[in-house]
Design a protein around this nucleic acid. Sequence first.
DNA 1: TGGGGTCCT
DNA 2: AGGACCC
Length: 743
Amino acid sequence: MHHECRYIIQTDIDFFYGQVNYLTSCSFLPSFEQPAQRDLVPNRAGRTAREPLLGTEAFRDSAKVTCNYLARAKGVGKLQLITDALKCCPELVIVNGEDLDRYRAASKKVFHLARSLVWGEKVERLGMDELFMDVTDMVVAHMADLDRPSPSSSMVPEHDNDLFFNLSLPGLLPAGFHYKRDTWAGHLISLSGDHLFDLTSPASPPASDSALQALYAASHLAAHIRGMIRSTLSFTCSAGVATSKLMAKLAADTHKPDAQTLLVPEAGESFIGPVPIKKIMGIGLKTMKILCERLREDREETGVGMEDGNGREEEDEEKLMMKQGDGPDAWMNNKMTVAFVKARTSREKFEDWFGQKAGGHMWELLNGEDYAEVIPTPTIPTQISIEDSFQHCTTLSDAGVRLVSLATDLIRRLETDLVDPATGAWARYPRTVRLTTRARSRGSEWAWKERRESRSAPMPVEVFEKGEIEERAKKVTEASLLPLLRKLVKEPFDVTLFNIAAVQLSTEKPASSITGFFSSALTQSPQRKPPPQPLLSARDWQSPASSSSSSSQIDSVTPRNVSHYLPSPPPDVDPSVWHDLPYEIQVEIATHYRVEVVAEGLDGDGVGTRVGNGVGRAVGVRKRGDDDETKDLDEDGVGARVEDGVDRAVGATKRGDDGEAAEGDEDRSKRQKRDELATLEYDREGEWEGLDDLDIVNDEWDVDGKDKGNDPGSGDYVCPQCGSHMFAWCRDAHEVFHRQREG
DNA sequence: TGGGGTCCT
DNA sequence: AGGACCC
């Protein structure tokens, strides 16, 4: 497999959160000429920043801040404590960064604009604010265009030296832009150094050969794309242009904000040498730590020092290095440059330390070789998740409240991201839901690892059906989340995080449950039927007893409508006995033995419902597997046959033209296989456990009436002392700042 | 930092 | 299911 030269553009929206806030907040004028006081500092860790306003002083000093460049110029750091940041820059405006909706929307706009500009929609998204674009086809076509003996009429230049970059696909009317021959846009890093092109310094080095001409053209294309992003969306961004993703990203990093740089391949080696290796995409913290250890070991064995080639190494540096028992720090990070590491290692060592594949790949990265392609990001994500972290969650009651709240937000997100607004149809159906928890470190374990555990279950079909969002959220919680939680934690527990993910997004709608069929039959039937009576009393989902926490829109992730989760009693349990049971026991029983709901007047006995439900779901899964053997999933040996079946089914969709694609597809098929098996297994469990639908209705649920009016999250507060604009919930922290300055 | 995502094993 | 990586 040979790699022809590619032209890659990487863009990075400058201080993305800040620009979004700037552009979407009505209290700030959308002008780039505004003075610094008008600039915003979003806080991505908005949760901790908000906590002090609710009365928890403990968090004030741990709230971190990220900021835009104007604020940075005033001495505000990138992940600074909020109180420190306010000391440097009193006029700083703190913005809650927890609600990511606006950022997601803005990010999507940039993404779709780029897709509309780049041929073949070869645009890959990295996080919210970064894009990779493979513009090879466009540049190659442009160079061919320039070679043509007679330029097309639309290419008539305004000036003699103008070239026309045709952006439209062949066969369409030309549309594009002009640029000056032998010039590049923005910065150029070549063997002779870093040149910023401007009109006063004549183009140098000139585009001596066609390869350089093509790169220059790519830089102009990058400038055009940045111009489009700025003119149509008002975002400034930085860009890097190079022949690989690796180099384009590193190049983009060299000049910002609102700048771009072109890196010619010849300068690649000298350019990448001084780069700290953790800047290389694909080398992270773990790799750094391992590398530090191995290097230290090697030095002890061979006596080869860690000197950086400038002669003797300093004694204290060596001591420092030895003391780094616990991995790299800032000093280490800057010391571990590409050249430094390359001088002391080899490809063989890397493959030994990190495995043949990963190690070899990383070694190539250190040598500036990156063959990774731009993978066009689908417009529909492969996973949608939402999470919330907190200090403690020790009771199932608390967990239930938090999970319902999270599930509510998740369903909302599914509807905005997965439902076609025009038709109201679901573009994808997440077939499984995954719950992950993070346990608080027990005992005196100081170096607590961020240990996350997860379990998955089928997504209840009710999620895709009509109905109040809270009802569906409760359904998910009862039917899947709480059972999953039981699998994850044992009785005395303390978790600090919940994450719910909707995964395995399928185009096929899962089979409806039998109860869903019954209820729709009831509504279609001419004879009136009262809706199923809830087995739960209104108090099962209580409104908060504590009104002390003033809730707000930004608080939506945190449960606020309910303070207690009360489980449903099994129908054959005497209610009075039930209520005498200890709470934890109630939860245990309720989540273990599902409660059956029998529609009134149907004379249903519940058993039929239960069996039908299980069968219905199993059929839904089988259909996708496209293999009859799927139904006999009993013993391990049979399970293997299922895997084969899935393998074949997936293999059929393989592109097949590329030898190396086979491995990747195989991995994918394995993953898919596991997901499907998990779904199947769970369905079977449900079959004999009696996985029936549980209808929970609560008339007291909706207490929004008194909450809606005062929303500190969206209010605009002006400090009477300094005139700073800020969100109302920032007021507390801001006043503390004034007090500190005076006292 | 936290609240997202991706792919690989 | 977990781990690495990315933002």
